[in-house]
Lab assay of single mutants.
Amino acid sequence: KEQQNAFYEILHLPNLTEEQRNGFIQSLKDDPSVSKEILAEAKKLNDAQA
């Protein structure tokens, strides 16, 4: 469930490039146990690119 939530949120971050988004999603698939950390990174990058 946590992985699904992170997946959904990353898909809807407006400021990520397609490449960045795909990278985060691939990381989620590779290691779902760190989905919280991956989501935090994605949000940080999204904010930095706002």
Results as ranks from 00 to 15, higher is better:
48 A>H: 15
44 K>E: 11
18 E>N: 11
41 E>T: 11
35 S>H: 15
13 L>S: 02
19 E>L: 09
49 Q>K: 05
45 L>K: 04
6 A>K: 05
16 L>N: 00
41 E>P: 00
29 K>M: 15
19 E>K: 10
6 A>V: 14
4 Q>S: 08
26 Q>T: 13
12 H>M: 12
27 S>F: 08
46 N>G: 03
44 K>P: 00
16 L>M: 02
19 E>S: 08
32 P>N: 03
41 E>R: 12
6 A>M: 09
18 E>H: 13
3 Q>Y: 09
29 K>S: 05
46 N>V: 02
8 Y>M: 14
39 L>F: 04
13 L>Q: 03
27 S>D: 10
10 I>C: 02
41 E>A: 13
6 A>T: 10
44 K>R: 06
49 Q>R: 07
30 D>T: 10
46 N>F: 01
13 L>K: 01
5 N>G: 11
35 S>N: 07
26 Q>G: 06
35 S>V: 10
4 Q>N: 07
50 A>W: 05
2 E>F: 01
38 I>A: 04
31 D>G: 07
44 K>A: 07
18 E>M: 12
38 I>P: 00
39 L>Y: 06
31 D>C: 03
21 R>S: 04
27 S>N: 13
43 K>A: 05
2 E>I: 10
7 F>C: 08
49 Q>W: 05
35 S>Q: 09
40 A>G: 07
25 I>A: 04
12 H>R: 07
42 A>F: 00
21 R>H: 02
7 F>W: 15
40 A>C: 04
42 A>E: 00
30 D>K: 14
11 L>D: 09
8 Y>C: 03
11 L>P: 01
26 Q>E: 11
41 E>W: 07
28 L>V: 06
1 K>L: 13
8 Y>H: 05
4 Q>L: 05
43 K>L: 06
28 L>I: 10
4 Q>M: 07
43 K>C: 03
25 I>G: 02
38 I>D: 00
47 D>W: 13
15 N>V: 02
1 K>T: 15
17 T>C: 03
43 K>P: 00
46 N>L: 01
43 K>S: 07
9 E>P: 04
47 D>L: 06
27 S>M: 14
26 Q>S: 12
35 S>Y: 14
41 E>I: 13
41 E>K: 14
20 Q>H: 02
14 P>E: 05
1 K>I: 06
41 E>N: 13
46 N>C: 03
21 R>L: 05
16 L>D: 00
43 K>H: 14
22 N>T: 12
25 I>R: 02
38 I>Y: 02
6 A>W: 12
25 I>K: 02
23 G>W: 09
35 S>F: 14
30 D>I: 08
29 K>D: 06
17 T>P: 01
10 I>Y: 01
40 A>W: 11
47 D>T: 09
15 N>T: 04
50 A>V: 10
5 N>I: 06
27 S>G: 10
18 E>Q: 07
30 D>A: 11
37 E>K: 15
5 N>D: 14
3 Q>E: 15
12 H>F: 12
38 I>W: 02
40 A>S: 13
48 A>R: 05
22 N>V: 10
38 I>E: 01
21 R>N: 01
44 K>Q: 13
20 Q>R: 01
26 Q>W: 02
43 K>I: 14
33 S>C: 05
47 D>I: 13
42 A>H: 00
6 A>Y: 11
37 E>D: 07
3 Q>S: 13
46 N>M: 02
41 E>L: 13
16 L>S: 00
15 N>H: 13
18 E>S: 11
50 A>C: 05
46 N>I: 02
45 L>I: 11
12 H>P: 01
29 K>F: 10
42 A>G: 02
36 K>W: 08
9 E>L: 04
8 Y>P: 04
40 A>L: 06
24 F>N: 00
2 E>Y: 01
28 L>N: 01
38 I>K: 04
3 Q>D: 15
48 A>S: 15
47 D>V: 11
9 E>Y: 08
31 D>R: 04
39 L>M: 09
8 Y>E: 15
35 S>M: 09
23 G>M: 12
24 F>H: 01
45 L>P: 00
26 Q>H: 13
25 I>S: 04
43 K>M: 07
39 L>R: 04
15 N>P: 00
32 P>Y: 11
27 S>C: 03
33 S>M: 10
39 L>N: 02
48 A>P: 02
41 E>V: 08
36 K>R: 15
49 Q>F: 08
40 A>F: 12
45 L>Q: 08
47 D>S: 14
30 D>E: 12
48 A>K: 14
2 E>D: 11
25 I>M: 14
7 F>S: 13
10 I>A: 01
1 K>G: 15
2 E>K: 06
19 E>A: 11
38 I>H: 02
3 Q>F: 12
9 E>M: 05
1 K>A: 12
16 L>C: 00
11 L>G: 09
22 N>C: 12
6 A>P: 14
30 D>Q: 15
17 T>M: 03
18 E>C: 08
47 D>Y: 06
44 K>S: 12
14 P>W: 04
20 Q>Y: 01
39 L>S: 04
7 F>I: 06
2 E>Q: 08
50 A>S: 13
32 P>E: 14
13 L>D: 01
18 E>V: 10
35 S>C: 04
27 S>V: 13
37 E>T: 13
42 A>Q: 00
16 L>F: 01
4 Q>T: 15
27 S>T: 05
36 K>C: 08
42 A>D: 00
10 I>F: 02
23 G>F: 12
31 D>I: 08
37 E>R: 07
6 A>Q: 08
22 N>L: 12
37 E>H: 07
37 E>N: 12
3 Q>N: 15
50 A>I: 11
26 Q>L: 06
1 K>H: 15
9 E>T: 04
1 K>Y: 03
3 Q>A: 07
42 A>I: 01
40 A>R: 10
45 L>T: 10
30 D>V: 15
49 Q>P: 04
2 E>C: 07
24 F>P: 00
10 I>V: 11
24 F>W: 01
37 E>M: 11
30 D>W: 05
21 R>M: 08
3 Q>P: 14
23 G>N: 14
13 L>C: 02
11 L>N: 12
26 Q>F: 03
6 A>G: 09
23 G>E: 06
7 F>Q: 09
17 T>S: 05
30 D>L: 08
13 L>P: 00
42 A>R: 00
42 A>P: 00
32 P>T: 05
1 K>E: 15
50 A>L: 10
14 P>H: 12
21 R>Q: 07
40 A>E: 15
21 R>K: 12
34 V>L: 10
31 D>P: 02
10 I>D: 01
21 R>D: 00
35 S>I: 12
38 I>N: 01
17 T>N: 13
10 I>H: 01
22 N>R: 10
46 N>S: 13
11 L>I: 09
15 N>R: 04
21 R>G: 01
49 Q>H: 11
5 N>C: 12
32 P>F: 08
27 S>W: 14
12 H>S: 11
24 F>K: 01
46 N>W: 00
8 Y>D: 15
18 E>W: 09
26 Q>V: 04
35 S>T: 14
36 K>D: 10
10 I>G: 01
45 L>V: 13
26 Q>A: 09
37 E>S: 09
48 A>Y: 05
29 K>A: 09
45 L>R: 07
10 I>N: 01
35 S>P: 05
33 S>Q: 15
